[in-house]
């Protein structure tokens, strides 16, 4: 009898807390969508903001977001994939490798505001890049680097050893094997990492808040300051400029995150299916 009571209360608590988690996700998404979607229109996407964002659209902000994200990816992808290849294919477990592995994990745990402080002290001031897309993109690339390394390495590990042995036995060098045999097998894993990196970059605020300036003009060069969507949202919320436009921007952000996560999920499911 006692046992049954224990069962009921245990499963009850687990069920309630799990459903509460699901419920809060649904509430957040539904609420933001319901308040925001009606305000998303072609004008909102294609016009510049007027009166600090009270009127008009967010075109320059979309452009800024895309620029910064692409720049961060362009920097972090080759480095991240290279690092993952090193860890998975070349490194022998030794002291040095142990240390750089530990620090890579440390980098993953550093909060975004610290990246912001660093970006400000190093890129903006010390390297004299000013508040610009370049400073923001570089700071952001450091932040998404661990994500890319991790997902690439995970997928490199799933390539069967026999593929490498087959290629090596045909006389290919290690590098040829890596580039022509191993990496093509993990295109999807790498892609998943990139997509997750995009998701992180789009949602990120604190690091850019201190490095990218916040101009609402359309940026035309890497040295121009810019503003991203999440930053725009923060500034409009903090300064109480426009609730409608904040909601519209939030809804747009959620739509992007939904798409990004769905694609990543779809790819990784297919990867699992293929194995």
């Amino acid at each position: 009898m006692n046992r049954k009571l224990g069962d009921i209360s245990f499963y009850g608590i687990v069920l309630i807390l799990s459903l509460a988690t699901l419920a809060i996700l649904i509430v957040i998404i539904a609420y933001v969508m319901r308040q925001g979607l009606p305000h998303i229109s072609w004008e909102f996407l294609s016009q510049s903001p007027e009166h600090m964002g009270r009127e008009g659209g967010i075109l320059p902000i979309i452009v800024g977001t895309v620029f910064v994200t692409l720049l961060a990816l362009a920097i972090a992808t080759p480095i991240g994939v290279g690092a993952a290849v090193f860890f998975a294919e070349y490194s022998k477990e030794g002291r040095v490798v142990q240390v750089i592995r530990t620090f890579t994990e440390v980098l993953a745990g550093i909060p975004s505001i610290i990246f912001g402080l660093f970006g400000f002290a190093f890129f903006v001031v010390f390297m004299q890049m000013g508040w610009s897309i370049l400073s923001g993109g570089l700071s952001l690339s450091l932040m998404i680097l661990p994500t890319i390394i991790r997902s690439t390495e995970e997928s490199l590990k799933t390539v069967p050893l026999s593929y490498r042995e087959g290629s090596l036995s045909l006389g290919a060098t290690k590098w040829e094997t890596t580039v022509k045999v191993v990496l093509p097998c993990c295109r999807k894993g790498i892609l998943t990492g990139l997509i997750l990196g995009i998701g992180r970059a789009v949602g990120e605020t604190a690091v850019l808040y201190l490095t990218i300036g916040g101009s609402i003009r359309i940026p035309t060069s890497l040295f121009d300051p810019a503003r991203t969507m999440s930053m725009h949202m923060y500034m409009m919320t903090a300064e109480g400029i426009s609730r409608e436009k904040s909601f519209a921007t939030a809804a747009l952000l959620i739509v992007i995150i939904l798409i990004v996560n769905s694609i990543a999920n779809f790819i990784s499911n297919r990867m699992k299916g293929a194995q």
Binding site: S18, T21, L22, L25, I28, I29, Y31, V32, G199, V202, G203, E204, T205, A206, S230, M231, M233, Y234, T237, R243, S246, F247, A250, L253, I254, I257, L258, V260, N261, N265
Partner: peptide, 22 residues
């Protein structure tokens, strides 16, 4: 359920802030 949890992780911090505020 896992996908839902990943989404929760993906929602930008400002959106959480905004939702909390309103």
């Amino acid at each position: 359920f896992k996908f839902a949890i990943e989404l929760l992780a993906g929602i930008p911090s400002v959106v959480y802030g905004f939702f909390g505020l309103i």
